[in-house]
Design a binder for these strands. Structure first.
Length: 104
DNA sequence: TGGGTGACTAAGT
DNA sequence: CACTTAGCCACCC
């Protein structure tokens, strides 16, 4: 119950905040950006502290937005003209190959 | 300190 | 391309 590892959380939020509109990153990319492989840890941090960061710019490696937040994410994607990709089944997902962004 | 959970990933089917 | 299996690391209690 003590405060979570602020060190890790702070870096995750910092990276996500640096993602410009119209771009996106996968959880693994964010983890790698902070020197870790904890993609799941990133997801947990986002779920808990993501309320203050553009979490919709962080998607899974497959391009799917966070589960149960797809509708909300889609609204942001349309508003920010984020590169989207439509699969044969009609599943909307972020076109990571194009929208993928990495912190300088 | 230790156990359970997850807004994940990569590989295989 | 979509679903399933196993592996990983950090978070929370």
């Amino acid at each position: 119950m003590t405060e979570p590892n602020e060190d890790f959380v702070s870096r995750v939020l910092a990276v996500v905040e640096e993602i410009p509109a119209g771009r996106a990153m996968s959880y693994g990319d964010v983890a790698a950006a902070i020197g870790s492989r904890a993609a799941r840890g990133v997801g947990q941090v986002m779920a808990y502290y993501g309320g203050d960061v553009p979490w919709w710019r962080v998607v899974r490696a497959s391009g799917h937005p966070a589960l149960n937040h797809e509708r909300q994410a889609l609204e942001y994607y349309r508003a920010e003209s984020t590169p989207l990709k439509l699969s044969t089944t009609g599943v909307i997902r972020v076109d990571l190959p194009i929208a993928r962004w990495s912190p300088s």
